[in-house]
């Protein structure tokens, strides 16, 4: 199944919590070109919010830095979301992805469900991380909406 990139958008922003909403809005706006369903938009916003929040809240907990979000739309309707930070990193990714696992102190009331929610709202989730170097979250969400007519020719048969 060969697919081409139809469109691409790269953003980079400082690790400020108010940028969580900004990142969601950007990703939702980017996905709009595929005429997605309300449910698909909610999936995009939720998955982006979880990953960006983790970078800001855990990756850059004790340091300043930038989060990079790259959005790619493929000819078959796949939206690929890539969220990267150069923060603290994760010691054991498998353990971190387990439901209710959190390293945040109890008074912050983290449910430890961020990865579980990402998993549920995406078709593909891959997490790479190295302690002291940062974390890289790659997600794919299949948008079944129609491409606008002017890009119809780049669609898979």
């Amino acid at each position: 199944m060969k697919k081409e990139i139809v469109n691409e958008l790269k953003t980079r922003f400082p690790a400020l919590s108010r940028n969580e909403g900004t990142a969601r809005a950007i990703a939702a706006a980017f996905a709009m070109q595929r005429d997605p369903t309300v449910k698909e938009i909610a999936a995009v916003k939720t998955a982006v919010s979880e990953a960006v929040t983790n970078s800001i809240d855990h990756g850059y907990r004790d340091r300043e830095g930038f989060v990079e979000m790259t959005l790619r739309l493929f000819s078959d309707g796949t939206l690929a979301v890539h969220i990267k930070d150069k923060g603290a990193g994760i010691e054991n990714v498998g353990e971190a992805m387990r439901p209710t696992f959190t390293t945040a102190p109890a008074e912050e009331e983290h449910s430890g469900l961020g990865f579980t929610i990402m998993e549920s709202f995406t078709d593909k989730l891959r997490v790479r991380s190295a302690v002291g170097r940062g974390t890289d979250v790659y997600m794919e969400i299949k948008l079944k909406g129609k491409l606008p007519p002017d890009t119809e020719d780049t669609r898979d048969a």
Binding site: R24, E50, T53, E108, S111, L113
Partner: peptide, 13 residues
């Protein structure tokens, strides 16, 4: 209009 895992933490708490 939107809630993520932070909202879950808020509700649970």
């Amino acid at each position: 209009g939107f809630m993520d895992s932070s909202g879950v933490g808020l509700v649970l708490g």
